[in-house]
Structures are given as structure tokens and as C-alpha cells.
């Protein structure tokens, strides 16, 4: 039977050569399953939507051509800020030095 087993091995070897498979009669762990796995990176990296063209991009491209664009939403926002400032509801002034910030804290 031993001779037969060797014959079968030979057959398997030839088979592996023809179909370009790995000949591994001892069933060693060769880690080929890692190589067979597909790469998951591209699908994982595509989870979040990509950046598309924004109004600002359009503005930036048209400005050199001497064309101006009117962003209504941005205009509204700036106007609201102006009104808030007039009412004294604007953002507080940035504290430049450590002393300023400390004194503001102490007052309270």
C-alpha cells in the first residue's frame, strides 16, 4: 500500500502543479488563508460620504473671474450677528493676557 500512497502523492503533486495550487501533504499551517482574504480597507474607508462641492468652493472659483456670488444664508447669519452685537449679546472679547482672565474670574 505504501507504494500506492506515494503514487497518490505524485498524482496530487501533478494536480497542484497544473492547477497552480499549493502542494501541502503534511497539512502544515502556511498562513495562506491570510493571503486569500480580500482587503477590507476600501469598503471600510468609504463609510462616510465624501466632500462635495460647497458654495464656498464656487465662490472661490468665480472670484478670480470677477464674478460675485450672493450667499443668502451666510448673509443672514452675518446680519443676525450684527444685531446681536448691537444688543450687547455678541461674543465676549478674547482675553489676551493671564491677568485679564484672572481678574474676570475674581470679580465673580
Amino acid at each position: 500500500m505504501a507504494a500506492q500512497y506515494s503514487r497518490i502523492l505524485d498524482l496530487a503533486k501533478v494536480q497542484c502543479r497544473i492547477f497552480s495550487l499549493n502542494f501541502n501533504p503534511e497539512r502544515l499551517r502556511l498562513g495562506n488563508k491570510v493571503l486569500r482574504q480580500r482587503l477590507r480597507g476600501p469598503s471600510l474607508a468609504a463609510w462616510y460620504p465624501k466632500k462635495t462641492v460647497s458654495f464656498r468652493d464656487l465662490q472661490a472659483t468665480y472670484k478670480p473671474l470677477g464674478l460675485t456670488m450672493f450667499d443668502e444664508r451666510e448673509d443672514d447669519r452675518e446680519e443676525a450677528l450684527q444685531i446681536a452685537k448691537l444688543r450687547g449679546k455678541g461674543r465676549p472679547k478674547k482675553k489676551r493676557t493671564a491677568a485679564e482672565s484672572r481678574s474676570a474670574k475674581k470679580k465673580k
Binding site: R29, L30, G31, N32, L39, G41, P42
Partner: peptide, 19 residues
């Protein structure tokens, strides 16, 4: 992860390969 996936897989292969 996408950038380094191939490298990781190569290392994993070397680790798993008992030969």
C-alpha cells in the same frame, strides 16, 4: 487602516506561516 492593511496582512502571513 486602509493604507496599512497590506502591510498588516503581510506580517500576519509571516506570523501564521509555520514553515
Amino acid at each position: 487602516f486602509e493604507q496599512h492593511e497590506a502591510e498588516r496582512q503581510a506580517l500576519r502571513y509571516v506570523i501564521r506561516n509555520t514553515s
